[in-house]
Amino acid sequence: MRVIVRTVSELCITVGALIVLFVAYVLFWTGVRADGAMNDQIDRLHRQWSRGRAQPTAAAPGERTVTARRPEPYRRGEAFAIMYIPRLGAGWHKPVLEGTGTGVLKKGLGHYARTARLGGRGNFSVAGHRRTYGDPFKDFPRLRPGDAVVLTDGSTWYTYRIDKGPYKTVPTDVGVIDPVPGKSGYARPGRYLTLTTCDPEWGHSHRLIVWAHLDATQPVDTGEPGALRR
């Protein structure tokens, strides 16, 4: 009898300890790992950019894109840009990687592979964690129309301006990342940006969306865009 009681209580203690450890892992350790991975990605990008200046692929909105050679396709799982959103904090910047798989999103924000290139015609769409793995989009609901979303690919600064959002929708609403997303208010094709994350904060029943349009581009040589200066 005593053996049974002891064994059961030991099991309970073990399960309790496991749960506490798992919560610590999810809340704390994934963040530590993700911060390390994201800094690593950003360092790698900076090294890559300083080695060889990528060929300029910038195209101002409305301007016809004339590129001698096609830009290299993004490689799955590799970072190709850094995103800055001043509203989420002066120091907020995250790498953007190609693809939206679970493994990719542990290292940064993920670009939906079938959507437009950065700065390109169509809808450049990016997903990010709301919670865990560094909480990149924790303050997503604070985004407001007019806020800047600035990206660089090493050769060009792209400044997008948020037009609508945060818009709450269901997880199957793939139309939000269409080239001209429905419900966004955009009527004509253009150079758009969509950010998606989960809602509620710790849940997965809905998604939060913001839409932005490309407002300005400038070469990196001319310094940081106005939206990043304060």
């Binding site: 939206t100 679970t102 997880p171 989960c198 997965h204 998604r207």
Partner: peptide, 16 residues
């Protein structure tokens, strides 16, 4: 834990 964590909903941030 890395195996168990994706079973929780925090990874569902995409629409597709």
């Amino acid at each position: 834990f890395p195996w168990a964590e994706p079973l929780l909903p925090f990874n569902d941030v995409t629409v597709d």
